[in-house]
């Protein structure tokens, strides 16, 4: 055991899983998983294009965050009353657009004769990104999310139920909602290097889906979802570290397993 390697890796797994699980419970409660998908893929596209422009390491964070934020705000601030048709249509367009951009960027590497090895790691996730520096950023984002959840607990609970009903209760939905979108983008962007741009989304929704299966009440949902996320993140990172399998894939499988177990537990409990 090399603690200099394992210590940050395990902490990263815990923090990444916990923070995305926490945010994810709202995403799942509001039935907007597409927001997570779109934002994470936009972040990926941003990072790939940034890398193409010669940015490396932590600097990739900047274009990724810009893309993620732009997508989140575009999706989230659409006036539901004013928009005709289904917002899912727009999600479809944005999703394929960001995927297209990401893969176009990947293709450009070979066209330009550059190595795309580093960028491919962004797709599948890599533990190489779990160092103390990354951990510090992840911890700061997680702290911001925690503060947000505590400060806006009652407002977010209303939003989780229904944005319309929150508006009707006189809640300043625009303020809380914009802040939330900002945090979602932030959480997805800081975590996707380690988990992988293609998979981070499931780390956001799976723990919450599992929590929704087995517990009731707002507080329990948040705690349970964060805990499941932390377990998926920690477990996934450890397995990936031991076996050299891609982190993203391991985490997805592990968190899906938790969803399956939760669903089974619910069936048994109902009997």
């Amino acid at each position: 055991m090399e603690w200099s390697f394992w210590c940050p890796v395990m902490l990263c797994g815990l923090v990444a899983g916990g923070s995305t699980g926490l945010v994810g419970s709202y995403i799942v409660g509001m039935r907007i998983p597409f927001l997570g998908v779109c934002v994470s893929h936009a972040a990926l596209a941003g990072a790939v294009l940034g890398s193409l422009l010669g940015l490396t390491g932590q600097m990739l964070f900047i274009p990724a965050l810009i893309f993620a934020l732009a997508t989140a705000l575009l999706l989230g601030l659409l006036d539901q009353n004013r928009m005709e048709g289904d917002s899912n249509l727009l999600v479809g367009i944005l999703f394929s657009l960001s995927m297209g951009l990401a893969f176009l960027g990947l293709g450009m590497f070979s066209v330009l004769g550059k190595s795309d090895h580093d960028v491919r790691q962004l797709l599948w996730g890599s533990l190489l990104f779990c160092r103390w520096y990354e951990l510090k950023i992840m911890a700061m984002v997680t702290a911001a999310i925690l503060i947000f959840v505590v400060l806006f607990y009652k407002e977010m609970q209303a939003l989780m139920f229904s944005r319309l009903h929150a508006t009707l209760a006189g809640i300043h939905v625009a303020v809380v909602w914009t802040l939330f979108l900002f945090l979602v983008s932030l959480a997805l962007t800081v975590n996707f290097q380690t988990v992988g741009g293609l998979m981070i989304y499931s780390l956001m929704t799976n723990p919450a889906i599992a929590a929704f299966q087995i517990v009731r009440g707002g507080k329990k949902i948040l705690i349970c979802s964060a805990a499941f996320g932390a377990i998926s993140g920690l477990g996934g990172f450890i397995i990936s570290g031991l076996t050299d399998l891609p982190t993203g894939a391991v985490i997805v499988l592990l968190s899906s397993l938790i969803v399956a177990l939760a669903a089974i537990a619910r069936r048994i409990g109902n009997r």
């Binding site: 209303a158 009440g217 707002g218």
Partner: peptide, 16 residues
Amino acid sequence: MPLTVREIVAIGQTGR
């Protein structure tokens, strides 16, 4: 929707 009835009724107070 896993929120309880009590939590949902309390939403009415949130804005006020």
